[in-house]
Design a protein around this nucleic acid. Structure first.
Length: 110
DNA sequence: GGATTGACAACAG
DNA sequence: TCTGTTGCCAATC
């Protein structure tokens, strides 16, 4: 697929996130080439809730490890999914964020 | 077709 | 250190 769109590329990266890991919008944006397009990544995630196959958007959090988009999941679904994968979430924030952080720019470049 | 919004991030004051 | 503003790209109104 030569015509790699930013939007479509985001889905691909998010689906590559290993279970029990989390990443940030900026990390994905940076991996795509423009860290400042993090807003586009977040926008892509918005459609992820209705996309098929479903995108593990619950593994994507902001720079602070905060589950900013949990409201779009419909309540506490996001933290429940993370907790189900072994990710400890307290006060809508991912604990051990630095440890669970999965950077596509590194993991996929190996 | 133009203006506004959006699950963010970085820089400036 | 914290608050405020700007930038980015695509989608929606």
């Amino acid at each position: 697929m030569a015509d790699y769109n930013f939007y479509d590329n985001v889905y691909d990266v998010v689906r590559l996130i290993p279970k029990g890991r989390v990443t940030s919008y900026g990390a994905i944006a940076a991996y795509l080439g423009s860290k400042q397009s993090s807003r586009v990544v977040g926008y892509a995630m918005m459609a992820a809730g209705t996309a098929n196959p479903p995108i593990p958007a619950h593994r994507v959090v902001n720079r602070q490890g905060l589950l900013t988009g949990k409201f779009h999941f419909g309540g506490d679904t996001m933290e429940q999914l993370l907790a189900s994968e072994g990710v400890e979430v307290i006060d809508d924030k991912v604990q051990h964020f630095k440890v669970l952080y999965w950077d596509p720019a590194i993991e996929l470049t190996l």
